[in-house]
């Protein structure tokens, strides 16, 4: 059966991280999209309506908070997991209030991230 809810959008300005996450989640069977900045990210959200977004906070131009707000404005149901380089407590708190479900501090363990994504977006085949 073709799955309807397995789309993940990866938003990070760092190429290596995008490729890594792409690799990890494709292997898991998810459909992945990548965006290097806010404009690309919102474009993909509009066109492909991902189920879950892995969102880096420190992105040049439109920052993570702003992207998060806009994604939620487009579709309140999109689940967002944020990624930070270090624990900026205030910012993390703010993203929670804006509807982010959880956060990962870089460098994260990909097994943990994988498990978290699976929990929030079970693959339905």
């Amino acid at each position: 059966m073709y799955t309807m809810s397995n789309k993940i959008l990866i938003v990070d300005d760092q190429y290596g991280i995008r490729i890594l996450l792409n690799e990890v989640f494709q292997k898991e069977g998810y459909t992945t999209f990548q965006a290097a900045n806010g404009v690309q990210a919102l474009d993909i959200v509009q066109k492909h309506s991902p189920d879950l977004v892995l969102l880096d906070m420190k992105i040049p131009g439109m920052d993570g908070i702003e992207i998060l707000k806009r994604i939620k404005a487009i579709n309140q149901d999109i689940r967002v997991i944020i990624m930070t380089a270090y624990g900026e407590l205030d910012m993390i708190q703010e993203t929670k209030e804006l509807g982010a479900i959880m956060h990962f501090a870089k460098p994260f363990d990909i097994d943990e991230l994988r498990a978290a994504v699976k929990k929030h977006l079970p693959i339905t085949t």
Binding site: Q14, G16, I17, I19, L20, L21, E23, V24, K58, A85, Y86, K106, P107, F108, D109, I110, D111
Partner: peptide
């Protein structure tokens, strides 16, 4: 230091992740 740490952590994430893979 914060700046450097931040910049180090990003590539580190990728390196560690790929290594794990």
């Amino acid at each position: 230091a914060a700046g450097i740490a931040h910049e180090i952590r990003n590539p580190l994430t990728a390196l560690k992740g790929f290594l794990q893979l």
